[in-house]
Amino acid sequence: MTNERVAVAKTYKIYIGGKFPRTESGRYYPLESAKGAVLANMCRGSRKDFRNAVVAARAATGGWSKTSAYLRGQILYRIAEMLEGRREQFIAELQLQGVNRRRAESEVNASIDRLIYYAGWADKYQQIFSAVNPVSSSHFNFSVLEPMGVVSILAPESSGLLGLVSNIAPAIVGGNTCVVLASQSKPLCAISFAEVLHASDVPGGVVNILTGFKPELTGQFASHMDVNAVVYCDGTVEIAKKVQELAAANIKRVVARVARDWSGDSAQDPYLIQDTQETKTTWHPIGS
């Protein structure tokens, strides 16, 4: 008999309202390695989990949207710091899911850098996209961006960490809250990323992360009446059609980010922030 230490395996749960519950449904799906070993029993999130997550996300909109741009920038920067400190854990998780060491390293590095990139935009995108409008009447008139509110995100299937980060960051840096469905086949990093968020002063409910079956949950992400925008990153024409048809119920904004390579610098720009922003125009008379 050897005295080797027995490793403690992690239970991967979902992340709702700053807490890590199991799915209310009690369902799971086994995540297997290339060789068929079970890596984890992932939560197979349900409609009800999604609805709970939207409630948490909605409750968080008031505070988060009013958080100063400077502070939002610092919090995104803090997420990057926490991720940097856990590089090895994320590289190992990516490797477990079949990514080779070199590529795993570059995916984690790019994810950290992407967070830094958007952290820097927090107090700048408004200056790029807002306007003082020279109206003919005696009014002061200006347009600014405001967050849409709750954004549901169907994260890219192929890019478990970088794709996830690349879609969460532009939504929350603009003051939105979000509910994210992780890559079904590469979900490990998403839940570990939730732990990073949890340690980064991101208020509970600002980011909520579910794991589960995309075909089962896509409709919920698109149709929920208290979601303001839906972002989807994969899929066929049929899926695009289904998402938009369901989104029409409350004239939800539909953002398609399909067939993107998330690894390049071209996968980041302030227009991705603008995707989930509304333009508000304010008028006031000029007089005495």
């Binding site: 306007a131 409008n133 004239i251 333009t279 508000k280 125009t281 008028w283 008379p285």
Partner: peptide, 30 residues
């Protein structure tokens, strides 16, 4: 999408117009 303070129903080509929520998608003007 459009808020008038101490005025109402003012329009101008330079001023973006359009709604949040079920009032529409996108802006016209400006």
């Amino acid at each position: 999408g459009v808020v008038w303070a101490n005025t109402f129903n003012k329009f101008d080509p330079a001023s973006p117009f359009g709604g949040y929520k079920e009032s529409g998608v996108g802006r016209e003007g400006g």
